[in-house]
């Protein structure tokens, strides 16, 4: 077990290396010049060149890459070209909203999707199955920003139940914090429930077809008891896997949701930075995202061992 964890940890190094190389390569291949953007419309070419050299952007690419990797190895992610602040500080400021949104969305998605999946599996092949699954897929069929607008229009503007936009720190009180997260996580949850509902349905269905479930049924256990105490726990492994893989997809959705609901998270930070070519910030955030993704998948592998005695390493 211990050596398994050690091996898995070591395996993350090349993955993060690939991420670093890919991200750096893509960004510096792309046109666009932060120096020109900063210097503004009235700057002369000489001024733009001076700005570029001050920012270190006139160095050979491999030297820029080397310098960046060197600082990353020392726990430094560099300084933002635009705001002149350490990337670690910028990320620190934006971490809480994104983590909060990801967690609440995961909860909302599971709360929506698992019951749908279980009901569909329970009534597999019937119109109930088809209609609840179609409902789940319908949520996935609209881009998340459209779902967001519809929710804002109905829940906030027409009914006046929830705030339209914004984010409150957890430090400002749990109530306002949670109220501001309801709509964004619902919008994202509706978009992602199909993914998890589908895998829940398949997994539960598979378990329901096994002998011990039939035995339990024949012993006179009610269907809901069978579903809740036998089928669902045994279907947990694949569901957890999909949630893990889904985190990367979810982070993509978070980017859009943060823009719609004016949430000051990491997603907006990185999209802004890509559009303005703030290289250190993009590199830093994507490296963090990749690290989180790798970390979560490592955790999930460990959960496998805990959840399913058949899996050994």
């Amino acid at each position: 077990m211990f050596s398994f964890i050690a091996r898995r940890l070591l395996a993350t190094i090349p993955v993060l290396g690939v991420v670093a190389l890919v991200v750096f390569g893509i960004l510096h291949l792309s046109p666009g010049d932060p120096a020109a953007l900063i210097a503004g419309d009235h700057a002369t070419p000489q001024q733009v060149a001076a700005m570029r050299s001050k920012l270190g952007l006139d160095q050979p690419l491999w030297e820029q890459f080397g310098a960046w990797i060197w600082s990353v190895l020392h726990g430094e992610l560099g300084i933002s070209i635009f705001s002149n602040q350490p990337v670690t500080r910028l990320i620190g400021q934006r971490l809480e909203p994104t983590i909060a949104l990801t967690i609440t969305t995961t909860i909302v998605t599971v709360l929506l999707a698992v019951p749908i999946g279980v009901i569909a599996a329970w009534r597999a092949g019937t119109w109930i199955d088809r209609s609840v699954m179609s409902f789940a897929v319908l949520g996935f069929s609209f881009p998340v920003f459209v779902v967001g607008y519809l929710l804002i229009y109905v829940v906030s503007m027409t009914l006046g139940w929830l705030p339209i936009q914004g984010y409150r720190n957890l430090g400002d009180g749990f109530g306002p914090f949670l109220i501001h997260l309801v709509l964004p996580s619902l919008a994202l949850g509706i978009s992602f429930m199909a993914l998890i509902a589908r895998i829940t349905r398949t997994s539960v269905l598979e378990v329901l077809n096994q002998d011990y479930i039939r035995t339990a049924r024949s012993k006179g256990l009610a269907m809901w008891q069978v579903l809740l105490y036998h089928a669902l726990p045994n279907a947990a492994v694949p569901i957890v896997t999909v949630i893990g893989v889904g985190i990367a997809v979810l982070i993509g959705g978070v980017v859009v949701t943060e823009s719609v609901f004016a949430i000051p998270g990491l997603g907006r930070l990185v999209v802004d930075s890509i559009l303005s070519r703030d290289y250190p910030v993009i590199q830093g955030v994507l490296l963090i995202f990749a690290g989180v993704y790798v970390g979560i998948n490592l955790l999930i592998d460990l959960l496998y061992v805990a959840l399913d005695p058949r899996i050994r390493y």
Binding site: M157, P163, I164, Q165, G166, S259, F261
Partner: peptide, 15 residues
């Protein structure tokens, strides 16, 4: 606020 429509809705609402 990056989203123009949401910004104007927030003004209408007094946010």
């Amino acid at each position: 606020m990056p989203d123009a429509a949401v910004a104007i809705a927030a003004l209408g609402n007094g946010e």
